[in-house]
């Protein structure tokens, strides 16, 4: 997809958008062309942004979490200075203003939302999922977090406290989930696979350890 957009900045090889476009979708092509004609932006600058965001994926978050699970010293650094810990792992989080890593425990679960719009740690995880930007998630995460998490299949016991964090343009969050039980023998790479995107937002826990299959 990136290449396709790169070559034609959003048009197919015949110069037509692939789908019927809404009035607003048409306007972004027009705005793009005007900005290019006036020299306000270049095609390379637009392309660089596409490549930047497509290189950011939840796999970055999974790498941070798995490292924190296997290396207690790294975990301390991740919680104390998340941007520096990211840099150690080759993840560039410097464009974020404040970046906070929230540690889940057996007694506390953290849930991240942006009630006003869609703030999200994009430099680390890429673009947020559709549901994160939805009106219903934005509305309910703050006053019905337990219900929201249940909808995602995550039944949080009443004894566990849920803390909701409302992101802003200046403050972004990543959840450090609890390491699933029975994963002592897994390698860091195997652990990464358990750290699904939604567990980094806090709506669900990581995947459970998969028991070894008998032959």
């Amino acid at each position: 997809m990136a290449d396709h957009v790169a070559a034609q900045a959003g048009e197919s090889e015949h110069g037509h958008p692939r789908h019927e476009l809404s009035a607003y979708a048409r306007r972004v092509y027009a705005i793009r062309d005007i900005l290019l004609e006036k020299g306000i932006l270049t095609g390379e600058e637009i392309q660089a942004q596409i490549e930047y965001i497509e290189a950011r994926t939840p796999a970055n978050g999974a790498r941070l979490v798995a490292r924190a699970w296997v290396d207690p010293e790294f975990k301390k650094r991740l919680l104390a200075d998340p941007k520096a810990a990211c840099s150690e792992m080759g993840i560039d989080a410097t464009s974020l203003n404040e970046f906070v890593v929230l540690e889940n425990t057996e007694k506390v679960r953290h849930l991240v939302v942006c009630t006003l719009c869609s703030c999200y740690p994009r430099p680390i995880l890429g673009r947020p999922p559709d549901w994160y930007k939805s009106f219903n998630y934005r509305a309910r995460a703050v006053n019905d977090p337990r219900g929201v998490m249940r909808e995602f299949g995550n039944d949080v016991p009443d004894a566990v406290e849920i803390r909701v964090h409302d992101s802003t343009a200046d403050m972004r969050y990543l959840v450090l989930p609890v390491r699933p039980k029975g994963t002592e023998s897994l390698s860091e790479e195997e652990l990464q696979k358990l750290v699904v995107r939604d567990s980094l937002i806090g709506v669900v826990d990581p995947l459970p350890a998969v028991p070894e299959q008998g032959v």
């Binding site: 997809m1 396709h4 957009v5 900045a9 959003g10 048009e11 958008p17 692939r18 789908h19 476009l21 979708a25 972004v28 092509y29 705005i31 793009r32 900005l35 306000i40 932006l41 600058e45 637009i46 392309q47 660089a48 942004q49 596409i50 930047y52 965001i53 673009r127 999922p129 559709d130 549901w131 939805s134 219903n136 998630y137 309910r140 929201v148 909808e151 995602f152």
Partner: peptide, 22 residues
């Protein structure tokens, strides 16, 4: 909450990129 996710269309990718480039 509707948990359906959609693959971004080209115009959405472009809107994102033009915004970020600016």
């Amino acid at each position: 909450i509707d948990r359906t996710e959609h693959q971004l269309d080209d115009w959405e990718i472009l809107a994102d990129a033009v915004n970020q480039a600016l």
